[in-house]
Every structure is written in structure tokens, then in C-alpha cells.
Amino acid sequence: MTENIQETKRGVPLWAQILVWGLLLGLLGLVAAGMVRTKEGPIRPGDKVRDFTMPLFSGYTFNGQSELSLSDLSGKVVVINFWASWCKPCEQEAADLEAAWRYYENGGEVVFLGADYVDTEPEARAYLKKFDITYPNGPDMGTRISQMFRIAGVPETYFIDREGVLRYVQVGPFTSTAQILQQIDALLQAP
């Protein structure tokens, strides 16, 4: 009987066992890597924001460039607004964001950046024209930036200090220009 059992065990060759276990371990590794990645986001206040580059819509430039990198804005307070033309709440805050931008524009210490999320260009352009938005705006190509911030929807606005550290996140629309100015002033006054 013992011989029979040994015979049965010999039924699955060693190479097949190694292959199966190797595949299982590989899959487990992939699942584990995915879970670790899921836990990485979102970027929370106090976290350093990784560098990214965003192309700008034609007609928009920053320092004469048609694309903008976060690393280029070192030493400035950066306000990143995620929006979309199909997003009705975004329309509520569009005028307030533009007013806040115009308030700080000449000082040169604050940069506003509009990231257009999952949008179509003709509609996006119409939106920018409708609200007369003048601060740098561009498409979030491949949704790379929104994935980096792990946004939950639009609108969302991220306030980054002069050191490149995220300080405040506004989920949903602002209700007044003063609300935006308050956040920026706090960052400008920080030592």
C-alpha cells in the first residue's frame, strides 16, 4: 500500500510542481505589489508632491513655454485645480478661481494651474472661453496627474507651499473668492 501511495505521489513530476508553485508565488507577488500601490495614495497634506509635467492648451503658456513642470514652480505657492467641462459644480467656482488668480498674478508668488480631467478638447476650450479663464490650463494626458493625486472626482483643488509640500485639499467647489484667498494667504505668510 505504501508503495502505491509513493507511486501516486510520483504521478505529478517535480518540474510541474515547481512550475505551479512558481506561478502561484508570482501571482501572489503581483497582487501584493498592487495592494501596496493602492495604499500609496492619495497624497495627503504634509506629503511632498512628486514632480509632473503637463502640456498646456494652445493659447496658454507659462514663461513662454507650452508645457509646465511642477519643479519649475519651486519657491512659489501652487494651486492645482482639477476640472472638466461636463462638471456642473466646476462652473460654480470657475469665476472665483479666475478672480483669485488675477488678484495674485502680478505678485509672481502664486501660480494657478488648471488640469482638465477626462474631457474633450472642443468642450474644454468652450468652457475656458465662457469663464474667461486666463491661468495656465491643460489636459491631464492619460489621467496621469489625477491618478498621482488620486482625486475622487471634480472639482478638487490642491494647495502646495513654496517647498512643494501639499498643505490643503478642497474637495468640491469653492463658494467664494475669499475662501481661496484665505488658503493662499496662509501659505504666503508661512515662514
Binding site: 507511486e7 504521478g11 505551479v20
Partner: peptide
């Protein structure tokens, strides 16, 4: 690949059960 490996394991198991 998993389906193939599963089928191979089942085949081997059935064969050994029949032999047993």
C-alpha cells in the same frame, strides 16, 4: 495556463484514483 494546470492535476488525480 491555470485552467491547463488544473486540468492536468485533475487528470493525474483521476488516473491515480482509478488505479487505487
Amino acid at each position: 495556463a491555470l485552467i491547463g494546470v488544473g486540468a492536468l492535476i485533475l487528470f493525474t488525480a483521476f488516473r491515480s484514483w482509478r488505479r487505487l
